[in-house]
Nucleic acid binder design. Sequence first.
DNA 1: TGTTAGCACTCTGCTTCATAGAGTGCTAAC
DNA 2: GTTAGCACTCTATGAAGCAGAGTGCTAACA
Lengths: 343, 343
Amino acid sequence: MMDERKRQVLQAIIDDYISTAEPIGSRTIARKCGLGVSPATIRNEMSDLEALGFLEQPHASAGRIPSAKGYRFYVDCLMGPQQLTDRDTVLINQWFDQKVRRLDEAFQETVKVLSRITRNVSLLVTPQAPVCRFKYLQFLPFDEKRVVVIVVTDTGVMENRLMEIPEGTSAEELQRIAAAMNHRLGGLNLPDIQASLLEQIKAEVMPQPELLEGAMALIKEAAGCAGANDKVYLGGTTQLLNQPEFRDVDKVRSLLSMLEEDRLLHDILHTQDGNGVIVTIGAENKFSGIKDCSVIQASFRLDGQMVGTLAVLGPTRMEYARTMAVIEFMQAHMGNILKKYQR
Amino acid sequence: MMDERKRQVLQAIIDDYISTAEPIGSRTIARKCGLGVSPATIRNEMSDLEALGFLEQPHASAGRIPSAKGYRFYVDCLMGPQQLTDRDTVLINQWFDQKVRRLDEAFQETVKVLSRITRNVSLLVTPQAPVCRFKYLQFLPFDEKRVVVIVVTDTGVMENRLMEIPEGTSAEELQRIAAAMNHRLGGLNLPDIQASLLEQIKAEVMPQPELLEGAMALIKEAAGCAGANDKVYLGGTTQLLNQPEFRDVDKVRSLLSMLEEDRLLHDILHTQDGNGVIVTIGAENKFSGIKDCSVIQASFRLDGQMVGTLAVLGPTRMEYARTMAVIEFMQAHMGNILKKYQR
DNA sequence: TGTTAGCACTCTGCTTCATAGAGTGCTAAC
DNA sequence: GTTAGCACTCTATGAAGCAGAGTGCTAACA
C-alpha cells in the first residue's frame, strides 16, 4: 500500500513543504518530482496518502501539507542521511576556537552556534545528579581579615570564594580545619556529602563555626551546581521569529514563556544513556505546549560519563536531515571541545 | 505659555496613554482630569500643546498621543516621585535571598527580577576596564599529570583552571615559576599586564613554556572578563511581546536582533560615574534602532567602585515614575546584595 | 486496470465600497 | 475666556464581488 511512487510523492511534498511552508498542490508535484505523470495521477496518490494519514488539508481547496505521521515516516524511512557542508564544520570549529574558555561558556556557545546553524531554537541541559568526587579544600591567604577558599573535585570543577576569617584565627588553625575536612570528605561523591555529615564535622572542629559554615556552603554549592551542572542553556529564541509558523505574536509568546521555565525544558528532553539522535515530532512530545514543534536531541559524554543533552527545537516543518547531521556532529565534537578547553 | 491647566491636561493625557496605549481625545480628558471644563476647551489646550510640540496626532481625526518632547517634559517637570509598593520590595528581597550565589548569578537574577517587575526588557552591563589588581597566582596539586592554577585578585575575582603539567616538572619548579610571576606581576592592574610583560617573564622562566602559556592565558582572562567583567546581561525579552507597540513580529525581530549584540548594548548605556537615574527618551538615544524606545538606567557601586550599570528598556510609552523608582531601589540594593553574597 | 483530460465546485485572499464612529477645527454665541 | 453646535476628515469594519488555486469526479483512453 506504500508503493515506490507514493513514497516519492510523499517525499517530494515534504521536501517542498519544508522549504516553502506553503500547502502544495498536485500540479507542482507533478512538475517537480519527475515521475512523468499528470497532476491527475498525483491527485489520486495524494488522496490515498491523505487517507493513510500522511497528509492533511488545511481546507478543502488548498494543497496538502504533511501530517505528524507523514513527518515520522519521512524521518524513519524516506530521507537519506545528510553530510554537513564544509562551511558548517569550519564555522563550528572557528567559533569554538575563538570563544570557549570555561565549561559553562562552552555550553553557552554551543547553543549559540547550534541555533545559528540550524536556524532554530536550541537547548542544552546538564544532568541533575553529577557524579563527581570531592578531592580537597584549601584556604589561600588573601589579606589580614579574609581568605580564599577553593574546593577541588576530581572532574576539575572548582568553586572558590572570598571569606571573612573569624577574629583571631591563626594560619595553623585554618590548616587544621582544612585537613580535618579533607580527611573526612576526601573521595566522597558530592551528592553524598549530606548536611548530616557536615554537622558531624562541625561538632569535631567546633572553634570556628563561621568559617566552617562558609566552607560547607561552598561544598554544597559545588555538589549542587558546581561549574555547570543541572543547568539549562537556551539559545536562538529569536530564530522563532523568522519562521512563518510564528508570524503570530501570541504563538511566539506562549512558546517563549514556556521556554523560560528551566524545569520544563529539563522534562522535555529525554535524558537517556544511548548515543543516538532522537527525533520527537509534534504531539509525540510530552508537553502540549510544543505539540506543533519537533525536537531533535542527542546526549553527549566526556570520559565515558554522560555530561549533557543538546537539542534543537523548531516547528514540525523542519529540516530534519540537516538538523540531525548537525546534532550528530556537535555531539561527537562536544567531547573533544570540552577535553581541549577545560578538564 | 505652559500654564497650570496645560500642565494638568498634558499630564492627564500622558498618564492615560501610558496605561491604554490608545490615542486620547478631548472628551475623555474633559471627563478624567477633573477641571470642570468642556471638551471644547480641552481641545483648544490640546491644539496649543500640539503646536508647542508636546503632543502629536497619528492622523487627522484621531486623538493625541505624547511626543518625545512631551515625555521629556513629563519626566522632568510633571510626574511626582513614586514609591515602590511593599509587594515589590518584598518580591525583590525574597528573590535574591533564594537565588543568588555567585556574582554573575547575582547579575543574571537582577535582570530577571528587574524585567519582571517593570514588565520590560532589562539589561545590566559591567564596565569595560575593571580596576583590579593581580594579587598572586598559585599552583595546587591535582594528580600526577595535572595541576590547578588559581589567580587571585584584590577584588576577590578568581579564575581557576585545570592544566597539564609538562613531562618531568617538579613541584619545586612549579613553585619557582609561581614565585617569579608573582614577583613580577604582584600589585599590577590587570589591564596593565600586557602581552609584552608576559613575554618578558616567559624569556626569564624559559624551561616550562607550556605551563607558562597556560597561566598567562588565565591571567589575561582574569584581566579581560574575570568573574563577570565586561559582560552584558539581558533579561525579559519576552516582555516585549506583551507591549501593544510590538504587535508586529518584524518590529520585535529587529529590536531583538539588535539586543543580541553585546557591543551595541554596551554603547547604548552611558557608563557614567554619577549616582543619578538617567532617562533617555526616543530619539535621544544614540541608536536609531531604539528611537521608539526609552531607556532608564543607573550605575551602581560596591566599596566605592563602579561595578556596573543596570537599565530598563521599553517603548517610549513607559511607566516612567514607577520604573525609575524600581531602578533606584535596585541601584541602592545591588551593593548590599553583592556584599552579602560575594566579596 | 491504471492513467489522463476536462470540468464543475469550493474555498481563500484581495479589492472595492459603503457605513458607522470617533475626534477635530471652526464659528458664533455666551 | 469658555462653550455649544456643526461640518469635515479619517479610520476601522464588514459586506460583496472577483480572481486564482486546487480538488474530486467522470468519462475516455491505452
